[in-house]
């Protein structure tokens, strides 16, 4: 087991999440949701603690974490940007919007800017197809976004 660098209080909180689900291996996905809410992402040591608590192998936990796109092993930026790449948004020009974000922020999909301010990801359909193309930043949803709007949107987070 790697040396643990997490603060003791956080580890305690993580253990409480596991206990909430009776430390059952079958509740792994719910536990991972709870853990990601707590830390923002799922670094290796968090996975090791969970494996220990639920009495399953670390390989099993890692296998599940990497299977599902909702779980991330990389920290997200303070303002996580998601471009909807559902079909409705795609046919209404989401790719151009994504390219513009990539160009301005100088990051690829799945990366975080050097200052930790923004991270960029794609998601599949938030279900607001009437507003396509859609971009979400944190909880905020932007509808009918064009490549020209990108600069203005980012400036709101200056």
């Amino acid at each position: 087991m790697a040396s643990v660098k997490l603060p003791e209080s956080k580890i305690q909180e993580l253990k409480e999440v596991c206990q909430k689900y009776d430390n059952k291996g079958s509740e792994l996905i719910n536990v991972l949701h709870g853990a990601q809410e707590l830390f923002g992402y799922l670094p290796a040591e968090v996975q090791e603690i969970i494996a220990d608590e639920l009495n399953v192998s670390v390989a099993h936990v890692y296998g599940v974490v990497t299977f599902y796109s909702f779980f991330s092993m990389l920290p997200k930026g303070r303002n996580p940007i998601s471009i909807c790449m559902g079909t409705a948004c795609y046919v209404r020009g989401a790719e151009k919007v994504l390219d513009e974000f990539k160009r301005i922020l100088n990051v690829k999909v799945g990366e975080t800017t050097g200052d930790g301010k923004f991270s960029l990801s794609c998601l599949r359909c938030v279900g607001a197809c009437g507003l396509a193309p859609v971009v979400t930043i944190g909880e905020r949803v932007y509808g009918r976004v064009s490549a020209d709007d990108v600069k203005k949107i980012l400036s709101e987070y200056a």
Partner: peptide, 12 residues
């Protein structure tokens, strides 16, 4: 688990 991108009836 409505995964089909562009479908949102179950959510609604």
């Amino acid at each position: 688990d409505e995964g089909d991108p562009g479908a949102f009836m179950d959510r609604s």
